[in-house]
Design a binder for these strands. Structure first.
Lengths: 142, 142
DNA sequence: ATGGATGCAAATGATTTGCATGAAG
DNA sequence: CTTCATGCAAATCATTTGCATCCAT
């Protein structure tokens, strides 16, 4: 059986990224938290307090370039990051109040993307996020 | 026939916003440019060079609060702003290369929003943006 | 050995804020 | 005349960068 740290090293290797402690730490954190995390959340979760914030930024940017990670925008002040290898394409719903994040697996943009392809667009991608007040927060407001 | 400046004043009035030159200028600019603009683009378009950048920021924020304007995120470093009163709900496709913006009128999120309502979410909204390389830019790359 | 990765500190750049003044209602 | 908006300058905060050192390969 493959141990986790070996699996993480394999991920880095396959993307021609050097195996370093900060990178292994960050993959582990993204793996274990099944929701998009901000840079500062990731930084706080690193046990080894030595790792610099700048390293976290640089690591995430190299992960994006390697298409290991998705950058997600909830229209607030922070960008968030999520491992791509973890799960297939999906979207999110963010609670306006408690900021809880749920995943949405339905993807309904194929039709539009088909139209865009007809129009001549290539390399089409999209970002789709939902915002709303979750049932718990609706209750509390009563 | 109602003159344009009167129309803009009416918009401000209806939203209990004081009628000032910067605000009229900014509504005019948003009206005349049928695409989302960044703060700095808006600022540059103001003839009267006296208007401060900070005023543009403050104005846009009060317009958002009054729901006069939508804030749009193309996952680059700038937020963009678009008048709501101009046209009904729509999305965009941004060219990866030339950054050209086209509007998309199809909205296909109703089904998901229906599901979310069933789950108890209230005040549901979403942001959906597309990215791709437009036909002109695909050509040029050959 | 050597190029890439890191820590640290300083720079950058978008956005916000404090305050005195000016204009709108 | 009183409240709110503006201009100006300074502050804030996320993110990036330069550089010397360190480590993976």
């Amino acid at each position: 059986m493959i141990m986790k740290s070996d699996e993480y090293k394999k991920i880095l290797n396959e993307n021609s990224l050097r195996i370093t402690t900060p990178r292994l730490d960050i993959i582990k954190i993204l793996r274990e938290n099944h929701k998009p995390l901000t840079i500062s959340e990731i930084h706080k979760k690193i046990k080894n307090r030595k790792t610099d914030l700048a390293t976290v930024y640089r690591t995430l940017n190299s992960f994006i370039k390697a298409k290991l990670v998705n950058e997600i925008n909830f229209n607030d002040e922070y960008k968030r990051y999520e491992l791509k290898i973890d799960r297939h394409h999906h979207h999110h719903i963010v609670c306006n109040v408690c900021k809880k994040i749920e995943n949405i697996d339905t993807c309904i943009t194929n039709e539009i993307e088909k139209d865009l392809k007809k129009k001549g667009y290539a390399d089409i991608s999209h970002s789709l996020e939902f915002f709303g007040t979750c049932s718990d927060c609706v209750e509390e407001d009563k």
